[in-house]
């Protein structure tokens, strides 16, 4: 069996995962598969890893921009989980805490489901200890992932209002000293985009190649505890 989610690329917003319709009948026998409700910023990686490992998983992404309104993550996950529970015996949450500050854990406890470990997706890609060391070495560290690099204009520039009010850059970034790109797949094109993103923020760029092995380990724990 292979994982089923597909993804498509959009020049405007980077990767936009396409979710299976939670209402649609599933010809592959959803009751024997695991539904992973994943952050849109992780969904592509989750789909690729589960396909590579042959895990019977369907990925149901939620919009990555929920990260800019983290108070909405837990309710959105709960709504989708309740919907999917009508069709799947097993549901897992492909989010770290992600700024929900415990409310996502409350939902997971209430529904008897589990989530990925860690505080943020940075922990999932690089490991919490490595992130802690990066921030200890320089508290003014602004972290990027492949997703954020690819969707920089929409998820960072537009969401922070910097496209409309470039004068706010100082307000947001004056205390940052460097951008650190936690690179999953540092292609030449993505390297150029990462450099352009760092330039737009006025920060020097450091690239740390982390791959997706750590995420794969965390996913394995989530899906096959």
């Amino acid at each position: 069996m292979t994982a089923s989610s597909t993804t498509s690329r959009s020049p405007a917003d980077g990767v936009r995962p396409q979710a299976p319709d939670p209402q649609a009948p599933d010809p592959r026998g959803a009751e024997s598969r695991t539904a992973v409700i994943a952050c849109g910023a992780l969904a592509q990686h989750v789909s690729e890893i589960t396909a590579r490992r042959g895990w019977p998983v369907d990925v149901h992404p939620l919009p990555p921009l929920l990260h800019n309104h983290p108070e909405r993550i837990a309710p959105e996950v709960e709504t989708l989980a309740r919907e999917l529970s009508k069709r799947y015996a097993t549901i897992a949450v492909g989010y770290a805490d992600c700024g929900s500050y415990g409310t996502l854990d409350e939902v997971c406890r209430r529904l008897g489901i589990r989530r990925l470990a860690g505080s943020h997706c940075y922990d999932l890609f690089a490991g919490a200890e490595r992130i802690r060391r990066l921030h200890k070495a320089e508290p003014g560290t602004y972290l990027l992932t492949d997703f954020l690099v690819r969707s920089f204009r929409r998820t960072i520039l537009a969401e922070l209002g910097l496209d409309r009010h470039p004068e706010l850059r100082e307000d947001y970034f004056r205390h940052y000293r460097r951008a650190v790109w936690l690179a999953q797949r540092p292609t030449p094109e993505l390297r150029r985009e990462a450099q352009a993103a760092a330039d737009a923020l006025g920060l020097p760029l450091r690239t740390v190649e982390v791959g997706d092995e750590n995420l794969e380990r965390e996913l394995a724990q989530l899906i096959h505890p």
Partner: peptide
Amino acid sequence: FFVPEMLIAGK
């Protein structure tokens, strides 16, 4: 309103 609107009004 979101953070950018708060910021520009505050400024």
